[in-house]
Amino acid sequence: MMFIRPARHDDLAQLMVLAGKTGGGLTSLPTDSATLSARIERSILTWQNALPRAEQGYVFVLEDGATHQVVGICAIEVAVGLQEPWYNFHVGTQVHASKELNVYNILPTLSLSNDHTGCSELCTLFLDPDYRNGKNGYLLSKSRFLFMAAFRHRFMQKVVAEMRGWIDEKGCSPFWESVGSRFFSMSFSAADYLCGTGQKSFIAELMPKHPLYIAYLSAEAQQVIGKTHPQTAPARAVLEAEGFRYLNYVDIFDGGPTLECDIDHVRAIRKSRLLPVNIGTEPHHNLPLCLVGNDHYDDFRVVLLNVDPHGEHLTLTQEQADILRCEQGDPLRVVTVSSSEKKA
């Protein structure tokens, strides 16, 4: 059985393997052992309440219970931009008009923004290509909502998620070539690596402080503003089904869209409920497919099961209860995968 759990120090080697499969462009999962080790340590310290809110971040992994292999990763940053600036571009407009000439032009622009400072962020979502089948992607992405529902007080009012922007098979980003490369004088991969390893001061030092006219960018760059990488398109669809929307903010490196939603409006958070466990026989498979998680802060687990989310209890097998670290009568949090994905 596949299940979500907190990342541990001994996951490092397998996370390095995962990082090597991203193909670039996933800034928060660099192929750098020291950075990933520090990320895991920061997550553990967050769970131990040993860090201030500005430094807190949770890292979860998807484990194949049959092989004990880590095949996916996802994370939540508690409050971005409180310790160091969190940048994106806002896609806006400027108007140039002349009554005398009867000319009225509306020109789209990119303006450097810190508007999402203090938001919680969904990040570092990556699933091993060999496991992109069934509902593994749903489990990996949506499990974070059960954690946020269980521990709502630990997160901010607005949640954002940066979607990976469009890059070609050679790792080239047309948005970067038309924007970033002109200010940073380095390759997309080099800037991506620096940012992923925490070396972000160059952004504030070199990024343009004035609006950029989109019309001055190459046609290729204009076409990918707000466009999601094909491998990330399913993740975007999952978030949009939960209530997230693109509100004209894009990544400063690859032009990928930033999605956002009020935390209390996220479907899985809003509709999740607690039900007691009844350990018995496995339920029928014609029941809705649901996310089921415990409310153990230090030993959080989530699985996908066919259960009745509207009944008086959740019937689990002993094996399922063992994975969720629960006993007879313990409360579990449950929500359907989505309104349109009710059965396995």
Rank of each mutant, 00 (worst) to 15 (best):
I4K: 02
R5T: 13
R8M: 10
D10Y: 11
M16H: 03
L18P: 05
G25F: 08
S28E: 10
L29V: 10
A38W: 14
A38N: 15
I40E: 09
R42V: 13
T46V: 15
A50R: 13
L51R: 15
L51T: 14
Y58R: 02
Y58Q: 05
Q69D: 03
V70A: 04
I73F: 01
I76S: 01
E77R: 10
L82R: 13
W86S: 08
H90G: 09
T93A: 07
V95I: 13
V95H: 11
A97D: 09
P108H: 00
S113M: 04
G118R: 01
E121C: 03
T124W: 14
L125H: 03
F126E: 03
N136L: 04
N136Q: 13
L140T: 12
S143K: 07
F145Q: 08
M148C: 08
M156F: 02
M156V: 09
M163D: 08
W166S: 00
D168S: 02
D168R: 06
F175P: 03
V179H: 06
G180I: 09
R182P: 08
M186V: 12
F188M: 04
A191R: 15
L194Y: 12
L194W: 14
G196Q: 10
Q199T: 03
S201E: 14
S201C: 02
F202V: 12
P208A: 00
P208K: 06
P208N: 01
H210R: 14
I214Y: 04
Y216A: 14
Y216Q: 14
L217E: 05
Q223V: 06
G226F: 05
T228D: 02
T232G: 02
A233H: 13
P234D: 07
E240M: 13
L247E: 12
D251C: 03
D251I: 11
T258C: 01
D262M: 07
V266I: 15
A268L: 02
A268S: 14
G280I: 02
T281S: 06
E282Y: 12
H284T: 08
H284Y: 05
H284F: 04
V292M: 10
D295V: 13
Y297P: 06
Y297T: 10
D299I: 09
F300Q: 11
L304R: 01
N306L: 00
V307L: 09
P309N: 00
G311M: 06
L314M: 07
L316S: 07
Q320D: 05
Q328G: 03
P331S: 01
L332H: 10
T336R: 14
